[in-house]
């Protein structure tokens, strides 16, 4: 992480390591952040734990993350002609990639009683943002745009929603990209139909959408009780210290994906 952003990111990381999810003060403290990713000098690549301290030259890339909070409210402001409240609109419209978080606890059991699911507003807001992005780019702009869907809280997904979508409890592994795409699409086609239609529409002018990639985030938690919110559960690591119990494989694969996008950009 960039030195300038170290304090903010360390604070939220320390909150997780002390068992709490980031509080509102910590959330407000972060609007954008820079990461520098690369490989340690190793023949085995980023997924290997056997690596030396030295960075391998020519493999690093810098990434600028921009957080767009309360998307619904931001898009209402934008549609009424105001600029976005917290971030530079240009950063958003000229972005190379977008991480679209899908709160897995809100994936609905779409059916006769609930034909549109529970993400209708979010779906509309994401679609509007993609439309704005498309309009802001010159026709035939060669720059590709990379949509990335990240299913957050996937450990707490409603199992009935998975049954209804006719998919297994556990998504295919990070390397099984075709199976993984089919798995994710079974959920997104019913929960974010407008967003998916936008991204997969071949007729779209002005922006070249790369095939989306899909990741699934899990953090082990102790369930909330009457008096306590969800707590992050920690594990004893090999070295005797405490470690977060989360889907590290997914995050490493995502970092690798972002590094590839950055080197092509």
């Amino acid at each position: 992480v960039d030195l300038a952003s170290m304090e903010e990111i360390s604070e939220v990381f320390q909150q997780l390591m002390s068992g709490s999810f980031p509080d509102s003060a910590a959330k407000e403290g972060i609007s954008d952040i820079n990461f520098h990713v690369g490989y340690r000098r190793s023949r085995l690549g980023i997924l290997s734990r056997r690596r030396s301290k030295a960075w391998s030259p020519d493999t690093s890339a810098s990434l600028h993350f921009v957080l767009l909070r309360n998307l619904d409210a931001e898009m209402s402001r934008f549609r009424s002609g105001s600029s976005l409240a917290n971030v530079n609109l240009r950063d958003v419209l000229e972005s190379d990639a977008m991480v679209i978080l899908v709160d897995s606890t809100r994936l609905a059991v779409v059916g006769e009683e609930n034909p549109h699911g529970t993400m209708t507003n979010y779906d509309g807001a994401v679609e509007s943002l993609l439309t704005a992005l498309q309009r802001s780019r010159a026709r035939g702009d060669p720059k590709r745009f990379h949509p990335i869907f990240l299913f957050s809280k996937f450990d707490s997904v409603n199992k009935k929603a998975l049954r209804r979508a006719k998919i297994e409890d556990v998504p295919p592994g990070v390397r099984e990209t075709t199976l993984r795409a089919a798995y994710a699409r079974a959920l997104l086609d019913t929960n974010l139909p407008k967003t998916i239609a936008k991204i997969t529409n071949r007729e779209v002018q002005g922006v070249r959408f790369a095939p989306p990639s899909y990741f699934f985030s899990r953090v082990a938690t102790e369930a909330a009780t009457e008096n306590l919110r969800d707590r992050v559960r920690l594990l004893r690591g090999d070295d005797g210290g405490w470690e977060l119990d989360y889907s590290a494989d997914e995050y490493l694969a995502l970092l690798e994906r972002l590094r590839t996008i950055a080197t092509e950009a």
């Binding site: 992480v1 990111i9 939220v12 990381f13 909150q15 997780l16 999810f21 980031p22 910590a26 959330k27 972060i30 952040i33 820079n34 990461f35 990713v37 890339a61 810098s62 990434l63 600028h64 993350f65 921009v66 957080l67 767009l68 909070r69 309360n70 998307l71 619904d72 950063d91 958003v92 000229e94 972005s95 190379d96 990639a97 977008m98 991480v99 679209i100 978080l101 899908v102 709160d103 809100r106 993400m119 979010y122 994401v126 943002l129 990240l150 957050s152 809280k153 985030s217 953090v219 977060l244 989360y246 590290a248 995050y251 490493l252 995502l254 970092l255 972002l258 996008i261 950055a262 950009a265």
Partner: peptide, 26 residues
């Protein structure tokens, strides 16, 4: 430097996502 926008509904885990991305790096 490439720009990556993170979007999500309220309490969908945007900040936790960044913290875990950081955790995966170190």
């Amino acid at each position: 430097m490439p720009h990556i926008v993170i979007i999500g509904d309220r309490d969908s885990g945007k900040t936790t996502f960044l913290a875990l991305l950081y955790a995966a790096q170190v």
